[in-house]
């Protein structure tokens, strides 16, 4: 196996570990409510790295990309339809 074909995976792994250090380290610094935002942003970034590089989403068949997008859309529908119900109960 050529070194060039391994490099993107190793670079991605380094990025994932750096992001882990950022999310863990930042949680010990008081950011006045932004800790949650940082943690969520880092988690989404890590997930995208895994999906795009390790799972090769955009090098997959068109149908696979459609399935992945539908999964994200279904999750959005789940949240958007259920959340107002909970919020309307006023806790």
């Amino acid at each position: 196996m050529k070194a060039a074909s391994v490099r993107p995976y190793v670079v991605t792994w380094i990025a994932l570990i750096v992001l882990l250090a950022i999310t863990c380290g930042s949680s010990f610094i008081p950011l006045h409510g932004f800790n949650l935002a940082v943690n969520l942003a880092v988690a989404v970034a890590k997930a995208l790295l895994v999906v795009v590089v390790f799972m090769r989403l955009f090098r997959s068949a068109g149908m696979v990309i459609v399935v992945a997008l539908i999964a994200a859309l279904d999750l959005a529908i789940l949240v958007c339809l259920t959340l107002p119900d909970f919020l309307a109960r006023g806790f």
């Binding site: 190793v10 991605t12 882990l20 890590k46 590089v53 390790f54």
Partner: peptide, 12 residues
């Protein structure tokens, strides 16, 4: 995260 790296390399 490291196990995922090795898995990606295994697939390759």
């Amino acid at each position: 995260l490291t196990s995922s790296l090795f898995m990606a390399l295994a697939v390759k």
